[in-house]
Design a protein around this nucleic acid. Structure first.
Lengths: 153, 153
DNA sequence: GTATATGCAAACCGTTTGCATGGCT
DNA sequence: AGCCATGCAAACGGTTTGCATATAC
C-alpha cells in the first residue's frame, strides 16, 4: 500500500510529540515503538507479539516484556485503547475515539470499519447511577470464499 | 433476587429438552449445569468459574474441567454463545440471538441491554468476499457513585 | 543523584488436554 | 459391548512481576 513499510519506521518527530503528549519519558525503546505505531500518522491495530516482531524487523529490538509494559503505559496515558475481541490476545489501537471495528475471524486481524457502519439510536438507557465508559462495536467477518480455506485451524 | 436462588436449581424438564435440542446426552453433570443455566427459563451470563461455584452451592458439584468442556459442548451445539469482553475470562450467554450487552466494569458483570439500546444503520459495508458472522455490541458501564467504591481492584 | 525504564526469567491464571475410570445407549 | 463423558493433574499460552542493571532528568 502506501509506503512506510520495511525501511521507514516513521518520522521521529511525531513519535516524540506523541510521547510528550502522554507525559512519558522518551526512552529509546518507547521511541522505537512509538515510531512504529504513529510515525506515519496512520492508525495501527497491534498485538504485543506483532509489535515485538515489527520492532525486531525494523532493527530496533525491544524485549517482549517491555513491549507489554510499554503498551500498558501508552494505554494508561490515554494514547491508545486496548480492545478485546479474541480472548486469547489483546489488541491495541492508536485511534482513541469511539469507532467500529471489523474483526476478521479467519486471520485474527482487526481493522477499522467505515464511520457510518453503525448508527446508535442514542446514548441508550444508561442505567441510573452508571456512567458510560465506552461502547465497543465489533463486526465479526468470515471469508466468504467457498473453497480457499487455508487451514482448518 | 427473584426466587430461583439457593434451593431451586430449576425444573429438570426444561434442562432435558434443552440438551435434547442440542443432541447432547443427558448425563448427570450436563443436566445439573443445564438446570442452573436454563432451568427457570431465564437467560444467564456465566463464567466457567461462576458456574462451577453455582453447581457446588446447589450440591451438584461438577469438576472445573468438565464445566469448561461442557460449556464448550453447549456452544458447539449452538445452545449458547461465548462472549469476549474482558480478556481475562470468557462469558457464556444462554441467549443466542444477536443482542447488546452491558458490561459493568467495576464488578466484571455482564447483563443484557434493552432491545432498543442500539440501532444499526443497516448490515453495513460488509467488505466483498466476506460474510457477517456476528455483531458484538458491548456498552461498558462504570458505577457513577462518587463514594461507594467497594475496593480499588 | 534519584527516580524510573528495561530485560530476563520465573510466576501467574484462565483454559485445554492426556489418560484412566465410569456411565449412557 | 462400545462409545463417549468425567475428573484429575499436568501442560499450555498470553500476560505480569521481581529484581538487578541501565538510563533520563
Amino acid at each position: 500500500m502506501t509506503a512506510s513499510t520495511d525501511k521507514d519506521p516513521g518520522t521521529p518527530e511525531r513519535a516524540e510529540a506523541w510521547l510528550a503528549s502522554g507525559h512519558l519519558r522518551p526512552t529509546r525503546q518507547r521511541l522505537a515503538l512509538a515510531r512504529l505505531l504513529v510515525g506515519d500518522g496512520r492508525n495501527r491495530h497491534v498485538t504485543a507479539e506483532s509489535l515485538h516482531e515489527a520492532a525486531g524487523l525494523a532493527e530496533m529490538p525491544v524485549s517482549l516484556a517491555t513491549v507489554y509494559n510499554t503498551l500498558r503505559a501508552f494505554c494508561d496515558a490515554g494514547l491508545m485503547h486496548e480492545i478485546t475481541v479474541d480472548g486469547t490476545r489483546s489488541y491495541f489501537d492508536t485511534r482513541i475515539d469511539d469507532h467500529t471495528h471489523y474483526f476478521w475471524e479467519d486471520e485474527g486481524r482487526l481493522t477499522d470499519a467505515p464511520n457510518d457502519a453503525i448508527r446508535l439510536a442514542a446514548p441508550p438507557d444508561i442505567p441510573a447511577n452508571a456512567t458510560l465508559a465506552r461502547i465497543d462495536v465489533v463486526i465479526r467477518l468470515r471469508k466468504a470464499t467457498p473453497e480457499a480455506i487455508p487451514e482448518d485451524r
